[in-house]
Design a protein around this nucleic acid. Structure first.
Lengths: 156, 156
DNA sequence: ATATGTGCAAATTCTTTGCGTAGCT
DNA sequence: AGCTACGCAAAGAATTTGCACATAT
């Protein structure tokens, strides 16, 4: 499996540390720590791509054959509510995509293969949006979505 | 109807001029100029929001009661192929949204009411992505998606 | 023991497709 | 006339929901 992450001065996520935080966060907010949720969240952390629910389901199901797709969708809702993951939508493909990397980063979307890659460059780090700059809109976060052709597709 | 466009030093689109260009573009590329397409494209130009296909359908259907939703989807495909509109997806709402403003601009998405507003500030004008800065990815275009709370929802 | 979560299957919602007829060029 | 587009209805894909049983706290 190819890596779909373009990294610059940004290390990988420490999975064990994050799993501990996950368990703590669940306990604090009254969510049960189930094997399904553990496996799903761990898979999301490990997967540096941006899997669809279906892909996540397929991956985790290998070690947990009784897992159901509905559980995946429900776990996703829980994770979003806990602010552990973000949902992603790109114009090129209407399926939900998941991103467990909560650090600010941007997305490269290949218009040919529709793959979504991370861009951890801090190019936009200095873009700030003072509340009044956008007529009363209170900006919580932002992402830059870049469209183009990835290196793999270019060489085809 | 409230305007959902945050304008800065950017005028509105000249609808008549754009309609002329539309007809020309259709002729040049061998697409028929039908009343449906004319009405749909005109509605998209006039609508400064970011309607879903369903909303566009409802709007145009008032003057054209025989219009069908399938025609709307097919026209959308045609318009995209002609590079006259862009499709938009935001994490807050999985429906397709349409944007007939092809000038570079950005999007404010209210996490409460899910409305998408235009931001015509050139904040990111100086963000340049030299081809090699993103390891072989060839950047065609980009948009900044801002999440937050709009002024209307803030006052509730 | 009780509340919460899981798995299954059915239901929704959004979008696409096939096909016969109508309209544009 | 010939090709393209339209409208209808049916199909398909993605996501959500309801409910009975199982599991976590």
């Amino acid at each position: 499996m190819k890596s779909s992450s373009v990294e610059r001065q940004m290390g990988p996520i420490d999975v064990d540390f994050m799993m501990d935080r996950f368990v703590t966060a669940c306990r604090e907010r009254g969510f049960s720590v189930t094997p399904q949720r553990l496996a799903l969240y761990r898979a999301l952390l490990g997967n540096r791509g941006h899997p669809t629910p279906e892909m996540l389901f397929a991956e985790v199901r290998e070690q947990m054959p009784t897992l159901s797709l509905a559980t995946v969708y429900k776990a996703i809702d829980t994770f979003k509510e806990m602010d552990l993951i973000r949902e992603l939508r790109v114009p090129e493909d209407h399926r939900m995509r998941l991103d467990a990397d909560m650090r600010r980063h941007h997305h490269l979307v290949c218009v040919r293969c529709r793959e979504v890659m991370d861009l951890h460059l801090d190019l936009a780090g200095d873009l700030s949006f003072p509340p009044d700059s956008v007529s009363g809109f209170e900006v919580h976060s932002f992402t830059v979505q870049l469209s183009g052709v990835c290196s793999e597709c270019k060489s085809d």
